[in-house]
């Protein structure tokens, strides 16, 4: 469960990213965070994994108070939350396997378990076996997005955050990725998708939290 209580965030230069945000997302929900570019969607997601700190207010994620979390506890929080970045953040000099395995290595999984889990998660996101030894730049945009999603899911997070996951994809691939996120949600993972695409929100009929200039509207 995710809860925000009157959260404020301002960036240097007095740029107000979020103001007075209060919200509640239940376990197992699928929620859109919507709004135009610069509305504060990415900042909101970053606050959930403590990549940013709120200036004011409290944030609870799975019972942890994010604003007051000790540095040593941040890794524990991040293990429960998967993040699909807008620009994928794949390491282009590493293979698909290495990109995904890196997460499990960081979580100190054994080598045999890593191999098993990477293969499993690639099947879940619908990628074929041949992809495993490729580097990201040899893959299409849709395939890269799936690899990024696989990397976020491989540690079995209870919450998945996706920042504009369909931003760079054509309509056909967008449907595929959205179907994948719905599938993950049906398996019990709470899913938050940040998007500026109003058509997408209208089509999938999920709860939407509209942001405009850092404030929740409507």
């Amino acid at each position: 469960m995710i809860q925000f209580f009157q959260v404020y965030k301002t960036y240097p230069g007095n740029i107000e990213a979020l103001a007075d945000i209060s919200l509640k997302i239940e376990k197992g929900e699928f929620v859109f965070i919507t709004g135009p570019s610069g509305a504060g969607k990415t900042t909101l997601l970053k606050l959930i994994i403590r990549a940013e700190r709120p200036d004011r207010g409290e944030i609870l994620v799975n019972g942890r108070n994010i604003a007051r979390l000790k540095n040593s506890q941040i890794p524990l929080l991040r293990r429960e939350v998967g993040f699909v970045f807008q620009d994928f953040k794949l390491l282009n000099h590493k293979t698909v396997y290495e990109n995904i395995a890196l997460v499990l290595e960081a979580l100190k999984y054994k080598k045999r378990e890593i191999t098993k889990r990477v293969r499993q998660i690639l099947r879940v996101v619908g990628l074929e076996e041949w992809v495993i030894k490729q580097t990201p730049l040899k893959l299409s945009g849709g395939e890269q997005q799936r690899v990024a999603t696989a990397r976020a899911l491989v540690k079995s997070p209870s919450i998945l955050l996706a920042d504009e996951p369909t931003g760079n994809l054509d309509p056909g691939l967008t449907v595929e990725i959205m179907n994948l996120l719905e599938k993950v949600n049906h398996l019990g993972t709470t899913v938050l998708v940040a998007t500026h695409d109003t058509n997408l929100v209208a089509k999938y009929k999920k709860r939407a939290l509209p942001l405009y200039r850092g404030k929740l509207v409507g």
Binding site: I49, A51, N71, S72, P75, L76, L77, R78, R79, F83, K89, L91, L102, V103, A106, L107, K108, R151, K155
Partner: peptide, 16 residues
């Protein structure tokens, strides 16, 4: 980039 990803997925300071 690699270190940033490691930290974002929950790697501890010591591990990095």
């Amino acid at each position: 980039a690699e270190i940033e990803i490691m930290k974002l997925v929950g790697a501890t300071d010591a591990f990095v």
